[in-house]
Design a protein around this nucleic acid. Structure first.
Lengths: 116, 116
DNA sequence: AATAATGGTAACCTATTGGTAACTAACACA
DNA sequence: TGTGTTAGTTACCAATAGGTTACCATTATT
């Protein structure tokens, strides 16, 4: 997903967190907790498991999140922000604040909604 | 381009500035000046004129930029941030700063580069 | 008469993204 | 024995995003 790593800062940022789902996934991890795959599918019912798993893999490859896989049956996998991922908090916070600003008050969100 | 206007602030923000080119276009307008279509094509040689024109139209429809068309021959068209667009400055600045942070020092950008 | 300049648009094509349904392994429980 | 659970993957297809090339109108310049 990373493209054109040189030249322009915004191009770089878009390379990491561009796309429809990545910022939304990252916001689910903002509070620092580890979150299970299944919980993410519940919080984001409009993203298919295939795409979610794909996006999580890219985020992990780019070093923004860490995947913890416990060798249990049935399996348990948890995701959390990496240290690099935590440096994105100001970006995600700015996006979150802007989206709230422009919303009608009754639509203003919380940090833990079901995302549609 | 606007999708799911309710429920989640980040989903809303991505609806406005998601996509490969929109944040990059908006950064070209950050300084408040009116910029001609042709200058944008020079600053962003990797975006085709068709896509640039398409994205500018969407940004205008979403109220983030203003299109000034002067009835001259050959034509002159200028774009600038709207008041709503200016409220995005913290978001764009955060994206720009993050992209610079993670770059090797020799790749750190200026506010007026050719974007690749 | 031809060429350049501007800000596009139309037709067409490719690439990426997204969606659905079925399948897996290994264990727990009824 | 059969069902449920988890975190996926695979195969297949549809939709969307992005890209390429050619073309337009109008005027000035060569």
């Amino acid at each position: 997903m990373l493209q054109n790593p040189e030249n322009c800062a915004v191009v770089r940022t878009v390379g990491y967190i561009g796309g429809k789902w990545k910022p939304i996934i990252l916001v689910r991890l903002l509070n620092g907790e580890k979150v299970r795959f299944g919980k993410l599918t519940v919080q984001m019912p409009d993203i298919s498991r295939k795409i979610l798993s794909q996006q999580l893999k890219e985020l992990e490859e780019d070093g923004l999140i860490i995947r913890h896989s416990y060798m249990e049956k049935p399996p348990r996998v948890e995701y959390e922000l990496s240290e690099l991922g935590k440096t994105l908090i100001p970006v995600l916070k700015a996006m979150y604040d802007w989206g709230n600003q422009i919303a009608a008050p009754e639509h203003k969100g919380t940090w833990d909604p079901i995302v549609r």
